[in-house]
Computed example of a mutant assay.
Amino acid sequence: MLAALALALPAQGAEPTLTLNLAAGQQQPEKVSMLLEILFTLTVLSVAPSIVLCCTSFTRIIVVFSFLRQAMGTGQMPPNQILASLAIFMTVVIMYPTGKKIYDEALNPYMEERLGFSEAVKRAEAPMRDYLFKHTREKDLSVFYTITKMDQPKTKEDVPTVMLSAAYMISELKTGFTIGFLVYIPFLVLDMVVSSVLLAMGMMMLPPAMVSMPFKLLLFVMVDGWNLMTAALVNSFV
């Protein structure tokens, strides 16, 4: 037994070594090793919340919902969790065509080993860039070129994806604030009417917001506000 143990131990003076092979096999030069695939997957999962916020319709939707809740004066109703969940589900519906195109043209061929890793990334990036360009203003994109002092791009292919994502987020904030302003107007008019009535009745000690909130809720329910708001937001991305 001692002899077997002695044979199992490394020779005297030898140093144990650990080798990690990150290269792909020689038979498939375009195939990335499993370790790199795992690292890439973990990286994508770690930055997934930022990708959802920056590169999808989530930003515009959650901004409009926040304006709607403030205009109605309902405080924390609906709760943040409800609004965020609804915004996520709407984002999935709106981004479904883009996601399906990425799956059909990049992810599925790569999983079936019909595409190399680099080619799959390029094909996955193309539908996303088309979506970003569709909803990004050139004015917002030029701001970042002015900041970085880079030459103006001649074609869409010359625009870096990172810069395009930043410009897209500014455009979405602008659009969200515009829609939020339009949502605010009917509730603001109702607040002014209630304030004028209370002032004419001499009830100056009663907060107008407290009196107008039931009327705003009644108005929102009567016109089926959630259906109209959801349809308007979804159609704004068509």
Rank of each mutant, 00 (worst) to 15 (best):
G75T: 05
K216H: 14
G176Q: 06
E37H: 07
T17W: 10
G202L: 12
A14D: 05
G202T: 05
K31S: 13
F117I: 07
T136Q: 11
G73F: 04
T178I: 04
N235M: 14
Q27L: 13
Q28A: 06
V159S: 09
I147Y: 13
M111H: 13
F40Y: 12
A167H: 04
E138A: 13
S66C: 12
F65W: 07
M90V: 08
V159K: 01
M229N: 02
R60Q: 09
F133Y: 01
R60V: 05
T178S: 11
E157P: 00
G225H: 07
E113P: 05
V183S: 01
V234C: 01
L18M: 10
L188C: 08
K139M: 03
M111W: 12
F67A: 00
H135L: 11
L219W: 14
S165T: 08
I38P: 12
I82L: 13
K31P: 10
T178C: 01
A126I: 04
W226H: 04
F177G: 06
L107Y: 15
E15F: 08
C55R: 07
V44F: 08
D158L: 00
E113G: 07
F58C: 02
E125H: 05
K156T: 10
S46F: 09
F237K: 01
I38S: 14
A124L: 04
P214G: 09
V162P: 01
P78M: 03
R114N: 13
A87L: 11
M229V: 14
T98R: 06
V47F: 09
I94S: 03
S196N: 14
A4L: 02
L107I: 15
L42N: 07
F144V: 09
K216M: 10
L9P: 00
Q28P: 08
E138G: 14
A124Q: 12
T56K: 09
M203K: 10
V44W: 07
L219E: 10
V159E: 03
K122L: 02
T59C: 12
T146L: 03
E157L: 09
L9I: 02
F215E: 11
S33L: 05
M204Q: 13
M203H: 13
N80D: 06
K139C: 03
M192Y: 07
S142Y: 11
I38G: 14
K101V: 02
L190R: 04
E172V: 00
K156G: 13
L45G: 12
G202W: 15
A6C: 00
R129P: 06
F177R: 06
F220Y: 15
N227Y: 03
P49I: 11
S118E: 15
V159G: 04
L36D: 14
E113C: 02
P10R: 11
G176C: 00
M111G: 13
L115Q: 12
V64S: 02
A209H: 04
T74K: 02
G116P: 15
T230C: 07
A48D: 07
A4W: 01
K174L: 00
E112G: 01
N108W: 09
K139P: 02
G73R: 01
R60F: 06
V211R: 08
M128V: 04
M222W: 04
T17F: 08
V47L: 04
K101W: 02
M77N: 15
V92G: 05
